[in-house]
């Protein structure tokens, strides 16, 4: 499951952006940046992969899709 956690945009901005995009994953919001802070996010994009047991499997900052893809692939094999 992919959740795109937005920081600081209002709902209509996210909605219109999502409408204009072809994303099949879900945009979610957070209150006052609390989620970003809880995860220590200081730069964007930051990605976390969280395993079925709720533990962090992988994290990255910046654009490196291949690493994320590998991390996701590795969880698939475990499932």
């Amino acid at each position: 499951m992919v959740l795109a956690v937005n920081t600081g945009d209002d709902k209509s901005t996210i909605e219109s952006y999502w409408k204009a995009s072809d994303y099949t994953f879900t945009a979610v919001r957070q209150s006052e940046g609390a989620v970003s802070r809880a995860f220590g996010v200081k730069a964007y994009p930051t990605n976390y992969v969280i395993g079925p047991d709720g533990k962090v499997l992988f994290r990255s900052v910046g654009y490196d899709q291949s690493k994320i893809a590998r991390a996701l692939e590795s969880t698939k094999k475990k499932d």
């Binding site: 992919v2 959740l3 920081t7 996210i14 995860f39 964007y44």
Partner: peptide, 13 residues
């Protein structure tokens, strides 16, 4: 829980 979750932090403006 029970699912693998990718959390992607982003903003638009």
């Amino acid at each position: 829980r029970g699912k693998t979750v990718l959390l992607n932090f982003w903003f638009y403006t």
